Structure formats: structure tokens, C-alpha cells
Simulated assay, not measured.
Amino acid sequence: MDELQQRQQLAAYIGKLFRDSFGKGPEGVYVSFGGPIITVYVRNLMSATEQILMEQDQEETIMSIRAKLMQKLIPEIKANVEFVTGIELQEVYYDWALQNRSGMIVGIAREAFGPVLAEDYMGKEQLHDEIKSISQRAQKAPEKMNSYELNPRTIVVVRSGTLVLIEKELIRTGYEVPLKYTKRNVEKRFLHNNSHFEAILDRRVVDLFVDWDFARDKSVIVFVLNDMNNTMEMS
């Protein structure tokens, strides 16, 4: 099975999995490989119940319900990725952009799914500088940061060493869930309000996602991009 067939099979499986779990399938599921990273971008996923909750400003309730659901779905997704590609995922991150009805799953493996990614892409150094600045405002500058351009529409940034002492203590004493919700709100606000990303990358930012693995003190940021003059069209 070639890479295109693998991506199509995974997209079909995840689309059905979400349809069975949410009661409504996403409009589109787009799978990308690059080096040791796989991303799954989901568009137009929101059940009728969630839409009512959105209208009542109950986003936190939706995020809480989806977090519980993903605890069940992630092992199934990991197993299917390994079945289709032969590669085991070591880390899985996810986030939702409820206003856009979109979502992102990021998996990181020890092996490469496809060709080795180029070390550089346009605007990489400036992008890192902006993210370091945002990280420092929200918590602290990362001890280590790498980023990968999987394709012209997907950039994944992986950071480690951003947790401060008080956050580690909150995690230790059982406040991981509210801490993640709060950190996500704060950091995504900084990310969305940054006016430099599009100029740096010379592409429009269509969606932004961020998630953490507190046990590893790692996090990912995903930029979904599009050409300034074109509408969104993912392959």
C-alpha cells in the first residue's frame, strides 16, 4: 500500500469512528505524513447537541465531553495507524477550534512515515522567535523547539520545557484538566492575536491548534495555512 492509499484508508477510518462516536461525521478528514509526524485535520464536526451548547456559550462543557471521548478514541486511532502504516505512535496530541468546527490530531513516532523533512522552510527562524516570545509571556521560553513543514498547508511546532514550577505543582496535586483548559485559552489568544505569522509565512492562517503532554513537558502547535489568494483545499 503506497502513502496515498494509507492516508485515504486512515481518513476513512477516522471519519467513520467520529461519525459513530459523535452521531455526525465530519465534512472532511485530511491525513498528512512527514518524517516522524502524522496529522489528522478534521473539518465541520459538530453535533446538534454541541451546537445548542455553543449557542449557550458552553464551550468548556463541549471541550470536557470531547476530552472524555478522546480518551476512548485515541487508543483505537493509534492501533489503526499502526495497522495501516506498521508504525507505532509514541505521543498523541489533539485540539479543537470550536468556532471553526475543526479539529487536529497530531501523532509523533520514533520512525519516519515518509521522506525526511527538509530542515528549513520560509520564515522558520522568525516563526520560532515569535513563538518563543509568546511562550515567555504565557509561561516561559521553551528549552527546546523544533518545527516541521509537512506540506505547504501544515506546519507543526514541537516545544519542550515550558512548564513553570507552579504549573508542575498544580499537575502533581490533580489540577491537570483545568490547567490545560486555562493554558489553551491563554496561549491561543496570544497566537490568534499575533499579526506577524501571516507576513512571516506569506500564507493565510486558516486554523491554529495547541496541546500539551504534561508528563513529558512537551507541547505542539499546528498552523493550518493557505495561499493568500486561494480558498482552503487540502489534498
Rank of each mutant, 00 (worst) to 15 (best):
K68T: 11
N100L: 15
D129Q: 10
Q58I: 01
I131C: 01
Y41D: 05
E59R: 14
N100G: 01
S64W: 00
S64D: 15
I52A: 12
L98G: 13
I65D: 08
F83D: 13
T49G: 03
V106H: 08
D57P: 00
E59I: 10
T39E: 12
Y121V: 03
A109D: 06
G86P: 08
G114P: 00
M54T: 14
S47L: 01
T49D: 11
Q90C: 02
L53Y: 04
E50Q: 10
F113E: 07
D57G: 00
I105E: 09
Y41W: 07
F113S: 12
K124G: 08
D129R: 15
K124E: 11
R110Q: 11
R43V: 00
R110L: 11
E55M: 09
V84P: 00
H128A: 10
G103W: 00
Y41T: 10
Y121H: 01
I62P: 04
F113W: 05
K132W: 09
S133K: 15
E76W: 05
Y41A: 07
V92F: 08
G114V: 03
Q71I: 05
I62L: 04
K78P: 03
L98D: 09
K68G: 12
V116T: 15
L73M: 13
D120Q: 13
S102V: 10
Q99F: 07
A118R: 08
A109S: 14
Q51R: 15
R43T: 01
L45M: 13
V106M: 12
E111D: 13
I87V: 13
S64A: 12
L127C: 02
V92W: 10
Q56H: 10
E82A: 11
Q71D: 15
K132C: 11
E82K: 15
I134S: 15
T61K: 09
R66G: 04
L69K: 12
F113D: 07
L73D: 02
E119H: 13
